[in-house]
Design a protein around this nucleic acid. Sequence first.
DNA 1: CTGGGGTCCT
DNA 2: AGGACCC
Length: 677
Amino acid sequence: MKSAVAATVTTALPAQPQHGAARAKVGEEKNKEADGDDRVILHFDYDCFYASVIENAHPALRTRPLGVRQKSILATCNYVARTRGVRKLMPVAQARAACPDLVVVCGEDLAPFRDASRRLWAFLRGAVAGARTERLGLDEVFLDVTAAVVYNRALLNPNALRDSFFHLSAEDPERGFTFDATRFAGCVHPPPDGQGEQHAGAGAAVLDDPVRVRLMLASHLAGYLRRRLEEDFGYTSSGGISTNKVLAKLVGSVNKPRNQTTLLPVQGENTIQEFLDAHQIREIPGIGSRTSSIIADHLFPPGKAVRAGHQEPEQQTPSGITVRDVLRYPDMSPALLSRILDRPGAERGGGKKIWNLLHGRDASEVKEAGVAPTQISVEDTYMARPLNTLPEALRELSVLATSLVRRMRADLTTAAEELTDPSSAGSAGLPLGTQQKRRWLAYPKTLRLSTCAHPGKSGSVSSTSNPSFSRISRSQPLPSFALDLGRPCAEVAERLVREALLPLFRRLHVGRAAGWNLALLNVCVANMVPVAGDGSSGSGGGAGGRDISRMFRTQGERLREWSAWDDDATTTTTTTTTMMSSPSLSPPRDRNDLFDGKAEGGAVANGGSEEKNDVEDAGSASAETELWAVDDGDSDSDVGWEDEDGDSVAQQRCAACGHVVPTFAMSAHERFHAMGD
DNA sequence: CTGGGGTCCT
DNA sequence: AGGACCC
């Protein structure tokens, strides 16, 4: 329960240092000096996401210890359960032993989680004009909000910092929220030495340093978005704010449930390196178990008893090796790392990449996700009873193929706008909405079947150092009948099994008619080809901006601003007033199979932003990037945001909409009008 | 009694 | 086709 730390700024706005000189104009000077700290990246991690989805569907569970099961382990559990000793990835039996009244629900069908994830993602994608958004798994999102933050920094009024307004769009000046620009929202990472000294210098530094200003603004943006996620959708989250993806994600873990943390550079100290140094290398995103154990084994050969603990089979994963251990190793260098990691199949820039990660440098971009996934797969495991006979295999392939066809239709098609009859204007469209016309957004060209033999039985347990056990796969072109939308899923699936999956299966297991001991089957379609003529892909033109604002309005936005938000995190879960007839749940007994699939209707608790979630939108935010383009204030010397002290920014009133805009931003602003005409 | 997915690179 | 990484 740490309450949010706020760095308070008490000084007046200082003159903006002539950073423009150092920063140089485009192309004039390389300025490769440092790890680009020129971006602003937010990372959101929904708290125990699967459990939250269940809780939103069944609010009565919020106060109970809850675990979400996949086969014999808990994929995750809520915080009530964690209080009672339950952990993520814990075997169910162990969890029940630790917490006998644990409510366990099955989470093997990911559909409800995928749906919830997509709704949250659609909100975040539409929330900040010009931002790029990337999903990582179902429960994490990166946003590159550099453009919006730069724009808003330029709009700061130094005389009224406490009553600042953050613009979420250059187009619509009403869209945004108020905030106090004299402080950070949420926590900051090296925590300000609160008690002893509240040095006035810290305050000055905040506004002196462009990076700090941007991060301060970003902290408020992150706080606003998290609040919306919680109030409008019912999902708490943890946030990280920094200048690249790795740092944003890492720092977001510092204050975990329902809080956020901004990683601050502190003048004269290398706080970022100190922050990284304490982490185990395995904890750095991008350094996986394989790389970690190779490095650990090389630095501290297993033969030597250097490390504490004399366990013989002590398996790797944490390894105990910290970033500091690696960087302090004699003669450590990118070249040495490259040599250590060099082996057939290794990534090319591998050593240098790891070296950069260990220093907190990460140039990877936030990738704007396409509307369609690049791959869809469905799998099941059969650990308890491995598959050994053809009838068993065919039955499971049928099940998987049916799910796959259903998912292809759900995720790769969209409602066909089939030159609409003007007569249907009354929205009386489809009385029995089910048989709606759909068309493919993208279609897969490849079908792949993967299997995996059971490690324990009869199969050769060849690799002692196996990260799980390895799969084998075969692929072929996807038959075109798989794209026939006129037939039932099951029918298409059956034909897929007979004509494609069974042949693939035979190619995988040549010469053996039975007795494969298969512990896993996976059916996958990949190699997606976007269907031309779809407005939601590239298109480039002005459509993007309008789509964003349209979607935003349908979200039921409206005077919600001016709600003061002190992230004094003492008040907890928004109490829910929901009309779910709570399913009978007797925790210890019965199989607790209360989760029945989709959270339909009024299932989602609170806020009531629900009901119409058919967003299926086409909001490609990338098209709007230019709107924020204010070329960074200091890269352009004509109008800094602080020409003279006093009230500073040269502003103009837009002739088209009347909005007052800084002079340097006017051309970008007008570009919007040109686009939206 | 070790999930059910995804991404990118080689 | 497989391996690394991510959750």
